[in-house]
Write a protein that binds this DNA or RNA. Structure first.
Length: 273
DNA sequence: CGTCCACGTCTAC
DNA sequence: TAGACCTGGACGG
């Protein structure tokens, strides 16, 4: 599920359910192979807030004033990647869902859990966002454009746009369905080198913001096993999609073994490459 | 039963 | 640039 929009919605969900709660414990499932050390002094009285940037989610743990001691850091950030199936759930502690792998318990019997069937999600303590991921196309639109423009003459932008659009160093948050839908909307040859494509279709920048915002308006994309608490209409997302997963579209497998969905009219452009 | 597929990174040859 | 990492749903025989 999680691309930019869904991670953004998750961060809002975490903020909503954590508001006014006091957390007293952090733990992981027995089956989790995460090596991030959750032990230590983070065991009494902290608040949780979340923020997203592209596909990254940052959880900030900050001490309740009455629990704060001088020798402690006032806040600590856990940077999370949600993998293919990660999502968040807030339940009573004895009703934590199957496949919960990172859990935060409150002092009144509730638990915030990172639920992740495939266990590709990762988390680690960090002072900030990962340096190898670019600005958020929605929340930091100007910086997002600047980051690309100042690197337009690098090797990377000689690669076809459908590949570069998945590079998180420049398009943090764009994943497989957003790639397909954005390029389909623009309706320009997606096999063009990225720089050339951007010169022909500079509105790609705008679409990298607008298309996610439309999905945000729908409550986010739908994943089979994600009960998205913000969903407005279950069918809306499937109907909104014009390209990704549609049987009248063409597909190729990209370098990363991801299926790229695109309009059949560009099949010929591919052969000419 | 079995095989294929999934909204993403990682790291090892 | 293959694989590795994972579970489970869809679909075929």
């Amino acid at each position: 599920m999680p691309e930019l929009v869904e991670v953004k919605i998750m961060s809002e969900y975490i903020n909503q359910v954590s508001e006014g709660k006091t957390f007293i414990n952090v733990r992981k499932s027995d089956v989790s192979k995460s090596k991030t050390n959750l032990k230590g002094s983070w065991s009494v009285g902290f608040n949780l807030t979340a923020q997203s940037r592209g596909k990254e989610l940052k959880l900030s743990l900050s001490w309740k004033p009455e629990c704060f001691k001088d020798h402690l850091e006032p806040t600590r950030d856990l940077i999370c990647n949600m993998g293919m199936s990660g999502n968040w759930s807030f339940t009573e502690t004895d009703k934590v869902p199957k496949h919960a792998h990172l859990m935060f318990d409150t002092n009144d019997g509730w638990t915030l859990s990172l639920v992740d069937v495939r266990r590709f999600a990762r988390w680690q303590w960090s002072n900030g966002w990962s340096s190898n991921r670019g600005p958020d196309p929605v929340e930091e639109w100007t910086a997002f454009i600047g980051n690309i423009l100042s690197n337009l003459d690098t090797k990377e932008f000689k690669k076809p746009i459908y590949e570069v659009l998945m590079n998180q160093e420049y398009f943090n948050g764009i994943g497989n369905y957003l790639r397909a839908e954005i390029l389909h909307r623009i309706d320009e040859n997606p096999f063009l080198p990225a720089k050339e494509y951007l010169i022909k279709a500079p509105h790609l920048f705008l679409y990298c913001k607008q298309v996610p915002m439309e999905v945000y308006g729908l409550g986010g994309g739908q994943l089979k096993d994600w009960s998205n608490p913000f969903v407005i209409d279950i069918k809306a997302f499937v109907e909104w999609q014009k390209c990704y997963g549609k049987k009248d579209m063409a597909t190729i497998i990209d370098k990363n073994k991801r299926k790229f969905w695109y309009n059949k009219k560009y099949e010929l452009s591919l052969k000419n490459e």
